[in-house]
Design a protein around this nucleic acid. Structure first.
Lengths: 341, 341
DNA sequence: CTGTTAGCGCGTTCAT
DNA sequence: ATGAACGCGCTAACAG
């Protein structure tokens, strides 16, 4: 049997389609008994308004899109993403929105954008300058940018104080006496673009700390890796083969975890032989042994704020931006370098 | 300015709407030059077919719904979920489907179901007997059930050998000499229903091991907790207050992690004072200290298979079911009880 | 006040 | 390469 439509119900109840629609959406327009009769028949027939047809006229899908710069399974290699989603969802849930995970189709974010039937987007890690965003704007859909860099812009966004957090973390290592610091930076999803957004901010923070401490910043000690445990491990191993370091300054906890793997592989002990610091303060940071020194950022909160901003702008038009604070968490994975002990 | 529609393009190009549609969907129907002209104008105007209107006629949304029995942010407290999603998404991505996270609306899964504009559903942790599923079936949408218990049923499903895995894990503890075993079971999202599905299977497995070892099974040593780290911790603390145990048999790694927390809180050392075993073999299992003895299941694979099954049935009609294997992973968190040392 | 008629929204598709 | 009908539910205008 084919799907039960509003017409089926109308026919069966000897009323017009309008009446059926009213029974569901404007109960007041109908006399209680016809209303009940319609509802009853609808229930019997198992009628459910088709969400797509409904959207056609209401212009509302009831879902919001989460725009990722990579495939979901790639992004999720970093527990950061599920965590932001937790935050987003907690708000979506309260407002009865569903979340659509939108990742590039055949490499094209735009293509994916065009296909998504949503009321608005939350974008993670993409900058306003990127084509896709301009596409959303053209479609005149509300957007909130998360981790897009703190450039002033018309587009509402939620960021954290990346630069400050990174700076404090680097300063911490330098103050411990480290001079040979391996920086593991997040490789952008698009390697061809100049460094910007979050990776850029954090790198700038690191650099600032070096400058303020009067220690030369060495580009050749910056290595890039996609934010996965494996990539972190490999890049650290590669770097260690070429140079000698007393500390690893990783731009993400998941990269720091990779560094732990590398250290273990090399028989180096943390923090005696090598200090390691991360960024994010994901739940895993506290599970590691020794616990990871890292920069705490309110990940869930970030997601929640973004969702709140978006949902609000769905009702009242575009809202503002927010910057959340970071905080250095010194734990067991960092200590003075061997030479200084 | 309002959204650019197909009519705008048609007008501007002096062709019919049909021609514009052809230019995008059946390029062969048009002479190359009109086709190019249309496409060019469409590009200029920034025209993108409205995904909703498109769905109206094609009956295809390009997304599949992931049906969760709880709010996303609740479910994600267990890293198991992001991991299944990784698996699902890897397949969805390859087939250009997006994933819609669908969780109950005001407590009603059905309500959420009715609103979701998707081509099919993957349901996690809900049984066929549950109302919502029957609703999908009425809507005649393809569904694949994950972790729904291995009852024979017409609905395609992907399961693992929960019972066997659980049995082997319990047997392991019993063979080590444990007699006072605290069982931490997963509390179903719906406490009113009789135990079934995955929790039931695993519990049966535990019970079997006791029976086969000739050791009395004690219901009063089974405690239920929602699958979160915090709930695991609390329930173990509560149990420990009332009784004395040498081992914890947790139905999920995340609950085992909670047990670690409890052990630490109580000043108990693992495995000397207390042995702990989990289920799932999530990445965190290997990060814990000592590493967690657990039952490995191919979580990503499970998601991937489910997605494959669903997408196939989207094309060729309903497919079969699959059961994946589990494997006991003995690691440092289990050892002989004190008394037997 | 209760209920109907008619047309819309946007892109696809059949017959011509 | 076109015009018209269609999908499904919503709603403005209108009649009893």
């Amino acid at each position: 049997m084919a799907r039960v439509t509003i017409s089926d119900v109308a026919r069966r109840a000897n009323v017009s389609k309008t009446a059926v629609s009213f029974a569901f959406n404007s109960p007041g327009q109908l006399s209680p008994d016809t209303r009940d009769r319609i509802l009853h028949i609808a229930g019997e027939l198992g009628y459910r308004p088709d969400p797509v047809a409904r959207t056609m006229t209401t212009k509302r899908t009831g879902s919001i899109g989460l725009l990722l710069p990579q495939a979901v399974h790639t992004a999720f290699a970093n527990p950061f993403y599920p965590l932001v989603i937790e935050g987003i969802s907690s708000v979506c849930d309260a407002h009865e929105y569903s979340l659509l995970l939108v990742s590039p189709v055949r490499g094209s974010v735009e293509e994916a954008l065009g296909r998504a039937a949503v009321d608005g987007f939350i974008s993670i890690g993409m900058d306003e300058a990127e084509l896709p965003i301009s596409h959303i704007l053209r479609r005149e859909m509300p957007v909130v940018l998360v981790d897009a860099g703190d450039r002033e812009g018309e587009t509402p966004r939620v960021n954290i104080s990346d630069r400050v957090g990174a700076r404090e973390c680097a300063r911490h290592l330098l103050e411990l006496g480290h001079r040979d610091v391996l920086v593991v930076a997040i490789q952008s999803y698009d390697e061809t673009r100049p460094l910007q957004g979050v990776p850029f901010e954090r790198l700038s923070g690191y650099q600032q700390a070096f400058e303020q401490a009067g220690i030369p910043w060495r580009e050749d000690r910056v290595f890039f890796a996609r934010p996965t445990r494996e990539a972190g491990r490999e890049v650290v191993l590669a770097a260690m083969r070429k140079g000698s370091y007393t500390a690893v300054l990783a731009m993400a906890d998941i990269l720091a975890l990779g560094a732990y793997d590398a250290a273990q592989h090399l028989g180096m002990r943390i923090p005696c032989d090598i200090s390691i610091a991360g960024f994010d303060d994901l739940p895993i940071a506290g599970l590691l042994h020794p616990p990871l020194t890292t920069v705490a950022q309110p990940v869930r909160e970030k997601g929640a704020r973004a969702a709140t901003l978006l949902i609000r702008s769905l009702q009242d038009g575009p809202g503002g931006s927010e910057v959340l604070e970071t905080q250095l968490c010194v734990r067991g994975s960092t200590g003075p370098p061997r030479s200084a002990m």
